[in-house]
Write a protein that binds this DNA or RNA. Structure first.
Length: 576
RNA sequence: CGGGGCGUGGCUCAGCCUGGUUAGAGCGCCUGGUUCGGGACCAGGAGGUCGGUGGUUCAAAUCCACUCGCCCCGACCA
């Protein structure tokens, strides 16, 4: 393609509304334009990049025997009412009515549609297993779209669904996806990590998220550099850092002391001169109307995911101030477990074995000292805290690392949730009815590009992996008014195309600086520069990522470049 | 949904607090010329009902009210 004919609206300055790197660069480089909050148009460059990503995804999905389909984006309400998710999804679902006043929605995901197809057509155990997938636009009315393409209201997703006779079959489908996902992200040039993820309360038994470390990410991951442990912060477990002060010895009994105006953990620490680790933090939560008192070490944060799991998956919320007062007789800031009788009390494991700590007295303006768990109050022990900086790995004891990450893929054992609720059954070998077990597996197409941009951005733009860049090579004549340079550039471009390379010819009547800057900005991984050295029969091959260039003879340029690019693809090839 | 910020040529912004000629700059765009190895220079030119509605005023980009849109933090995210 010839740049002079293309629509690649690059911008010299960062767009005002963009905050994260990938958003700024994708807009500046002319990949995307915003239409509304969380809704973007994908221009030529984005579309080319997505096509390449999709191709990789498709090849790897096909390789595990998955079958591609394309399902409707517009769904009847009845379908979602059957699975129960019509109500569960709430405002996240785009809903509309047709002319006959029938309720419809735009698909957020396709478990329902896939299951509906399966139950109509799958009759015998002999037809299983099946893996079906599609690459489809999904709609979610996000409460807050943000960060460019990272969280949007309309996006491309590869979603696949597996149907198996039993859990062992599901394991196989899950493992196939796990390996396919690793291959996909590797081929797309991402540095990623597969983390254990929260699998939800409903039927899910195993789940992994594929994460790319990036500050622009919205998730937190916990990693152990030593043993490879990796988990989403929601689910991650750790050994707590030791308390900063030793507990007082002795069989002491709880003793109230006045703490006027002292409410927060930090204030209590300051007031008593003892660190936050010497305190018991008491939180009042509500699980389906029932109060729950949650106890943590003062410096720890509650993981609501873990708490909900500990309560059997019930939804939870923080108690309102008037509820706390009603149940415990004091305001937040003076609450504690001592003397609490008719309330579920859950305590985090980091408090186990501690002695003579400080907590609220359930009397405004007072705290208790010398409070010992299991002596002065009883609680059910659970892992309830979020991993904190300084925590150690439960497997190897090494220090854990935490960081933000972009979720590019998620694989998930669904279990029987949809097959059971929607009546999917096949006949087994003995004539019995079998409800197939399902899995669900997603990949965010746009997020792969975002993650790559975040990973490989520099001052001048993006330096995309060759496999997902919109072009593999750009041929840049330095001086348009030099007929020899132009002729050589055209010839190189033609040869590159003939050699099967995805080439772009920058034939614009621009100064060289403009062409170089634009090429760097849009992230084409290789450039052939045709300039002065053409007189000596030489041109330059420039590598975007390393910013290195070297001279080659004109006639060998395409051969050398083709080999360089082949090598680049080899380096992205999974070795397994 | 709570908190904060921003809407002025295509883009990035100034002007607004303290109302008052034809509303500015840089970039981009168009014409002509000179240039040509990292976002050139000279000359000329086009392009804006200042997000919208209502109000205050002799007079509103500027003050007030409402409203729409966008961004950020938080809440939320099978």
């Amino acid at each position: 393609m010839r740049w002079s004919q293309l629509f690649i609206p690059t911008l010299r300055e960062d767009p005002a509304e963009a905050e994260v790197v990938s958003h700024k660069l994708l807009v500046r480089a002319g990949y995307i334009r915003q239409l509304a909050a969380g809704i973007y148009s994908y221009l030529l460059l984005a579309q080319r990049s997505f096509n390449k990503i999709v191709r990789v995804v498709r090849e790897e999905m096909d390789a595990i025997g998955a079958q591609e389909m394309l399902l409707p984006a517009l769904h009847p309400a009845e379908l979602w009412q059957e699975s129960g998710r019509w109500d569960v999804m709430g405002d996240d679902m785009f809903r509309l009515k047709d002319r006959g006043d029938r309720q419809l929605c735009l698909g957020m995901t396709h478990e329902e549609v896939m299951t509906a197809i399966a139950r109509g057509e799958l009759r015998s155990y002999k037809q299983l297993p099946q893996i079906w997938y599609q690459i489809q636009t999904k709609f979610r009315d996000e409460p807050r779209p943000r960060s460019g393409l990272i969280r949007v209201r309309q996006f491309l997703m590869k979603d696949s669904y597996s149907f198996d006779l039993d859990a062992a079959g599901l394991d196989i489908a899950y493992q196939k996806h796990y390996r396919a996902y690793c291959r996909i992200f590797q081929r797309c040039g991402l540095k990623f990590v597969a983390v254990e993820a929260h699998s939800g309360a409903m039927g899910g038994s195993q789940s992994h998220e594929f994460m790319v470390r990036a500050d622009a990410g919205e998730d937190w991951v916990v990693l152990c550099p030593h043993c490879g442990y990796a988990a989403n912060l929601e689910k991650a477990v750790s050994l707590p850092s030791p308390p900063l002060a030793e507990d007082p010895e002795g069989e002491l009994t709880p003793e109230p002391f006045p703490t006027p105006g002292v409410r927060t953990i930090a204030e209590v620490a300051e007031f008593t001169g003892l660190p936050e680790t010497s305190q018991i933090k008491s939180l009042v939560m509500v699980a389906e109307g029932a109060p729950v008192l949650v106890l943590l070490r003062g410096d720890h944060q509650l993981s609501e995911t873990k708490l909900s799991e500990a309560l059997g998956g019930r939804p939870i919320r923080p108690a309102h101030p008037d509820e706390m007062r009603e149940w415990l007789g004091a305001d937040a800031g003076s609450l504690g477990p001592v003397g609490v009788a008719d309330m579920t009390i859950l305590a985090d494991l980091a408090l186990r074995g501690r002695r003579n700590m400080i907590c609220g007295a359930n009397r405004d303006g007072y705290h208790l000292r010398h409070v010992t768990p299991e002596e002065d109050f009883q609680a059910a022990w659970h892992d309830l805290r979020q991993v904190a900086p300084g925590d150690r790995c439960t497997r190897c004891g090494g220090p854990l690392d935490m960081g933000r990450a972009i979720e590019v893929g998620h694989i998930f054992k669904l279990g029987y949730k949809y097959s059971a609720s929607m009546g999917l059954r096949v006949t087994g070998p003995k004539g019995e009815e079998i409800t197939p077990i399902m899995g669900s597996y997603g990949i965010g197409i746009e997020r792969i590009l975002c993650a790559a941009v975040e990973l490989y951005a520099d001052e001048d733009g993006m330096a995309l992996p060759v496999s997902i860049a919109p072009f593999e090579v750009i041929v840049t004549p330095v001086n348009n008014s030099d007929p020899e340079q132009m002729a050589a550039a055209r010839s190189l471009y033609d040869k590159a195309r003939a050699a099967g390379l995805d080439a772009l010819l920058d034939d614009r009547d621009e100064r060289p600086g403009v062409k170089f800057k634009d090429a760097d900005l849009i992230g084409v991984p290789y450039r052939i520069t045709v300039g002065k050295k053409l007189a000596g029969g030489r041109v330059e091959i420039y590598e975007r990522r390393s910013r290195q260039s070297h001279e080659v003879e004109l006639d060998r340029a395409v051969t050398v470049l083709a080999e360089t690019i082949r090598e680049a693809y080899r380096n992205l090839q999974p070795r397994d």
